[in-house]
């Protein structure tokens, strides 16, 4: 996906974040209260537990144009629901392999444990991720879906691949 980088210079990545209500969302609030300025590329969706983050949501976000997805949950042992974050971690590792096969770079999907007191960490994680995704360039999945659809249409219209019988 190296050709992505020839996009306009002023391009800014869009990152969808799923933050758990008890730790990371609260930490993001703390970052706000502490006025910790950071990159404006991340759009936060609040869920009760990082365990609620269905891999579908992540795939959907990429499919609809996100350049990165960030998931934030409580540290191990701190889950408000005791063990939801362990489930998240397991799913995340499986999903990562799938994303790799799909050609979506590792840096575009990130799981972070950020406790309610770590407002500063919200800032550093967001800034770091934005920088990394910026370096990768846009993912452009919706546009590429269109291009692929067109290719398929072309193949269909031109009967490419159909066997041609030649008679002597």
């Amino acid at each position: 996906m190296s050709d992505n980088k020839k996009e306009t210079k002023n391009w800014e990545p869009t990152i969808v974040a799923f933050f758990c209500n008890w730790c990371t969302y609260t930490a993001a609030d703390l970052a706000g209260v502490s006025r910790l300025r950071h990159a404006a590329n991340v759009r936060i969706i609040r869920v009760m537990c990082s365990g609620r983050v269905d891999p579908q949501f992540i795939l959907n976000a990429y499919a609809k144009g996100a350049d990165g997805v960030l998931i934030g949950g409580c540290h191990f042992g701190d889950c408000h629901y005791m063990e939801g974050n362990y489930k998240t971690a397991r799913r995340f590792h499986l999903l990562k392999r799938m994303l790799q096969d799909m050609g979506i770079e590792e840096e575009r999907c990130r799981l972070e444990w950020i406790s309610a007191s770590e407002g500063e960490r919200v800032r550093t994680v967001i800034n770091d991720m934005v920088e990394k995704v910026k370096a990768l360039g846009p993912l452009r999945l919706p546009e590429r879906f269109n291009e692929w659809d067109k290719e398929m249409e072309f193949i269909g219209e031109h009967n490419i691949g159909e066997e041609v019988h030649i008679h002597a």
């Binding site: 969808v16 009760m48 537990c49 609620r52 269905d54 949501f57 976000a61 939801g84």
Partner: peptide, 30 residues
């Protein structure tokens, strides 16, 4: 917490206030 909702392979588990349609709509809206 919604952990089971995310795990159900047939999508038969839903969660009030955080069901799939609501969250997907939020992602799409974003």
């Amino acid at each position: 917490c919604g952990t089971c909702v995310a795990a159900c392979p047939s999508g038969s588990i839903q969660q009030n206030m955080f069901d799939d349609a609501e969250i997907l709509a939020e992602i799409n809206g974003l």
